[in-house]
Amino acid sequence: MLERFPDLQPRDEEVTDVAGTYTFFAALVLRYALLANGSGSADDAVSCGHVALTAMGMLDQHVAGAGFRTQEQRLQLLSVSGDAAGLWEASIDAGRERCRTVLGRAAGSSG
């Protein structure tokens, strides 16, 4: 079903705009998260984590001093450590911060 998302469809030209780049990564993370949840596959879970780290690394390259990749890596380590206290809240806060940052980048690149 997710393969129907326009962001996951093959296209002739590369995605180069801010919104297109991060919606692609969001759809891909969601795809792997759903696959891992449905199958229990460690490979799908690793792919999900890798895509999230890649996206945050790209965001770090465009936002001086952001540290989103390090934050994502810390959240991923917490999720498998067995001590996930506060992980849900931390993930929500991180997601909101990332969303604000991407929206700010998109607004800054539209003019």
Rank of each mutant, 00 (worst) to 15 (best):
L35H: 09
D17V: 10
V18R: 11
F24D: 04
L28M: 11
V51L: 08
T23E: 06
V46I: 08
L28W: 00
G49N: 10
D17I: 08
F24M: 12
L28T: 12
T54Q: 12
L30P: 02
A45T: 08
R31W: 15
Y22N: 03
A36H: 01
T16Y: 06
S47Y: 10
H50K: 12
A33K: 11
L53E: 09
G49A: 07
S39I: 08
S47W: 04
V29N: 01
A26P: 02
L30Q: 11
G38S: 09
G38M: 10
A42V: 12
A33H: 03
A52G: 07
A52D: 09
T23S: 12
V46G: 07
D43G: 01
L53K: 06
C48L: 03
G40M: 01
R31P: 05
T16W: 02
A36G: 00
N37W: 06
T21E: 04
G49M: 03
G40P: 00
D17Y: 10
R31I: 07
G38I: 07
A26E: 13
S39F: 08
V18E: 08
V18K: 13
L30C: 10
L34Y: 03
S47E: 12
G20K: 10
R31L: 15
A19E: 11
S39E: 13
T54I: 06
Y22L: 05
V46S: 04
A36S: 11
V46N: 01
D44E: 14
V51Q: 06
G20T: 10
G40N: 03
D43E: 12
S47K: 14
A27Y: 01
G38H: 11
V29H: 03
C48F: 02
V29I: 15
A27F: 00
A19I: 13
A42M: 03
T16E: 04
L53N: 06
D44V: 00
T54F: 14
V29A: 06
A27E: 08
F25C: 10
L30T: 14
H50L: 12
V18A: 09
D43R: 02
G38Q: 12
L28D: 05
A42K: 07
T21P: 02
D17C: 07
Y22R: 11
D44G: 05
S39V: 04
H50F: 11
A26Y: 01
